[in-house]
Amino acid sequence: HIDHAGAAGELAERLGLPIIGPHEADQFWIDGLPGQSKMFGFPPAQAFTPTRWLHDGDTVTVGDCTLAVRHCPGHTPGHVVFYSAEARRAFVGDVLFAGSIGRTDFPQGDHDTLIASIKQRLWPMGDDTVFIPGHGPESTFGRERRTNPYVADR
């Protein structure tokens, strides 16, 4: 969405950088960035095609850190999460929040798919894993399993 990727195309072009990810199921969102920027009053955005698409099980390296890629659809069909087992950290974007979950009312969002992604793709990373959401405070998967009204273990 525009609030996460609005300047990616311009930065990549200006700095000669590759764009890695997300999963190709989100190309329609990337193609819609110019319209989203107008609709929500953001600076003009340009569409792009990533240099490399990401798939479940891929890895990406940032500096000395290698992150595992987990495809977690539901908020968007191509949403990916980045996980460092060594650091016990997951960058989850808008899939999960402290006390809430991502929206599923956007085109191709799906509530049941999002819940399944959280429970099947995130919970196995461990209760002690800290997650960094796209908005708001950090939490742990264990805390959300106990208290989050949308995904708490029953």
Results as ranks from 00 to 15, higher is better:
D128E: 11
K119E: 13
Q27G: 15
R103P: 10
P22E: 07
V62P: 05
P34D: 02
T147W: 15
P34V: 01
W53I: 06
G21K: 05
F40S: 12
R103S: 13
Q120E: 15
Q108M: 14
A12F: 11
S117R: 05
D112F: 03
P124V: 00
E10I: 14
P133S: 01
R52N: 04
I20Q: 10
D26L: 00
H23Q: 06
T113N: 12
Q36P: 11
P107M: 02
A116Y: 15
G136L: 13
G6P: 03
A5V: 12
T129K: 06
P137V: 09
D127I: 04
A8H: 08
G6T: 01
F82I: 11
T104Q: 10
I2Y: 01
L114R: 06
P124F: 00
V95D: 00
T66S: 08
F40G: 11
P149N: 02
D26Q: 02
N148Y: 03
R154T: 14
D128L: 06
D94N: 00
Q27T: 14
S139N: 03
G136F: 13
F28R: 15
L17M: 15
H135G: 14
Y83C: 06
T104W: 13
T104V: 09
H75N: 10
V60C: 05
E144Q: 07
P34H: 03
G21M: 07
Y150S: 12
